[in-house]
Design a protein around this nucleic acid. Structure first.
Length: 285
DNA sequence: AGAACCACCTGGCAGC
DNA sequence: TGCTGCCAGGTGGTTC
């Protein structure tokens, strides 16, 4: 599910209601997520205060500080919860009810009696703990943020030099650029007018520039719409996103292109469906 | 070394 | 109605 715009929407929704609050109790109903929850997870988190909530790619990084040190000079223990939502994960507040509905695996009880709930039907998501999240192998391997200034055509050109992979797969390579998944890769390539099957290494600097610009534009539009909802995705208040209303190619196979009379087509690339307009995104051949 | 493939897991839907 | 097969927002590990 959640690509960068969805995760960032969740982060923005959680932050004002979470930061500065302590965890009164932790309820774990299932610990076998993509990775098993750390041992003693509940004890480690209970009593911690959420002091920062950041995002790297599709990961949420929740900085947790142990409550005020009881003993003078005692080292303040701090750690980071590394949260990934996988395909179907959600992180939201449940007011006036405890955790307990289907696929709600972890709940954090907050001082006001509200639960922050991690729900994930497919359990492709995970919650990990790290004392040094920046150097955690899952985090340190993430490429640059697509909305940062350093993400531009020159960067893509350099990263993609010699690459034979299709540009659409290359855009989804999180080690190069973070947070772009199947939906936004397809939408960005449509906006850039680039066929998804063109080998990344064949693209000209101008084409790489177009793609970088399109990626930023698509992500900004999606953020404004609160992300895309297919089935499961909801923000921290349990509400759906709206960007699916603005999809130009994704899940639109057989439908007319928004810009020309052609029909949107679907192909398989690396076992994922890719949608594109054969006329607006001409292949090289 | 790089690229393609598979597994992980559940639910929903189409087709028989 | 119920079974089977396929598909779905991701990505780390395996295989080629």
């Amino acid at each position: 599910m959640p690509e960068l715009p969805e995760v960032e929407t969740i982060r923005r929704g959680l932050s004002p209601r979470l930061l500065g609050k302590g965890v009164c109790a932790v309820v774990v109903r299932r610990d076998d997520l993509r990775y098993r929850l750390p041992p003693k997870f509940s004890q480690l988190i209970k009593g911690c205060v959420f002091s920062a909530l950041e995002r790297r790619g599709k990961y949420l990084l929740a900085r947790m500080e142990k409550g005020k040190g009881k003993k003078e000079g005692e080292k303040q223990k701090a750690m980071t919860m590394i949260i990934h939502l996988g395909m179907t994960g959600a992180l939201f507040f449940a007011s006036r009810r405890p955790i307990g509905e289907k696929h709600e695996h972890v709940g954090f009880l907050l001082p006001d009696g509200e639960y922050l709930i991690f729900r994930d039907p497919r359990r492709f998501g995970c919650i990990l703990l790290s004392d040094d999240a920046g150097n955690h192998p899952l985090i340190s391997a993430i490429g640059i943020e697509p909305l940062s200034a350093s993400f531009n055509g020159a960067y893509l050109c350099k990263q993609w030099r010699g690459k034979k992979t299709a540009v659409k797969s290359a855009l989804m390579d999180g080690g190069i650029v973070a947070g772009i998944g199947n939906i936004y890769a397809a939408e960005a390539l449509f906006l850039a007018g680039i066929h998804p099957a063109i080998r990344a290494g064949y693209l000209s600097p101008a084409q790489c520039g177009k793609i970088a610009k399109a990626v930023k534009a698509i992500l900004r539009m999606a953020l404004k719409a609160g992300g895309s909802t297919i089935r499961d995705y909801v923000n921290s208040d349990g509400e759906a996103g709206h960007f699916q209303m603005q999809w130009k190619v994704y899940e639109r196979a057989g439908m007319p292109c928004a810009k020309c009379p052609a029909q949107i087509e679907a192909i398989r690339q690396n076992n994922r469906t890719t949608f594109y307009c054969p006329r607006c995104q001409p292949s090289l051949y």
